[in-house]
């Protein structure tokens, strides 16, 4: 099926790089998977409290961020196509758009968390512990952990995309050696994929 090929350049194997990235993505999925297990158990144990907690979140901001991520996923997917079509200028442009969208996502997230902090809600805050039910404490604990970890992945993804962008510009990533860009794309789609589940589970369950 997949026989080993002796490449002209023994140190570059596109399929190996792709497989490696996929395996890494599996570990990331299981990392978030652990959190989804925690979420599903506690939601099962505290259904009302989780609905109350979700009312505190702003679905509009969540929806805007969803759209941003989906669009950015498209732009980076397109950039891999444009690299294959040897259109370097368009590739660079699409990557820049992706990075900008990621930045907007983070700014939104910053304000969203800021509003929570203004309401006295943060992990271990007095308002949370004294005035709210245990289910709500869990809801917000998980909210901060899961969106926070996701935001961390956004930042890492941005760094990878920036590196890929530089490499596209100086030509070390090109249509014959596109692994870095392809893998940056895969990673970015992973971030998107996780958000696709985070969004309804936190914002849409009232």
């Amino acid at each position: 099926m997949e026989q080993v090929s002796q490449h002209a350049d023994p140190h570059y194997d596109q399929e190996a790089n792709k497989l490696g990235m996929w395996l890494f993505i599996f570990t990331e999925l299981l990392l978030f998977g652990g959190l989804f297990i925690v979420y599903s158990i506690y939601r099962f144990l505290n259904p009302e409290a989780f609905q109350l907690g979700a009312h505190e979140l702003n679905p509009t901001i969540g929806a805007i961020n969803t759209i941003i991520l989906l669009v950015s996923s498209m732009t980076i997917a397109m950039s891999t196509s444009s690299l294959q079509k040897k259109n370097k200028g368009l590739t660079v442009l699409l990557l820049e758009i992706t990075i900008m969208l990621a930045l907007v996502f983070l700014i939104n997230k910053y304000f969203e968390w800021g509003v929570k902090f203004d309401h006295g809600i943060w992990p271990g805050s007095e308002h949370l512990i004294n005035d709210m039910s245990r289910g709500e404490i869990l809801f917000f604990g998980l909210y901060f952990v899961m969106t926070g970890l996701h935001a961390l992945h956004i930042i890492v993804g941005m760094i990878i995309i920036i590196v890929a962008l530089k490499r596209v510009q100086n030509g070390t990533v090109n249509e014959n050696r596109s692994s870095l860009l392809d893998n940056a794309g895969l990673y970015w789609h992973l971030v998107d994929l996780i958000w696709i589940f985070l969004f309804p589970l936190f914002y849409l369950i009232h």
Partner: peptide, 14 residues
């Protein structure tokens, strides 16, 4: 560090 409560029975965790 923060006391997020996920495993703390006093905060609802299991």
């Amino acid at each position: 560090i923060f006391g997020i409560g996920v495993f703390d029975p006093a905060l609802g965790g299991d």
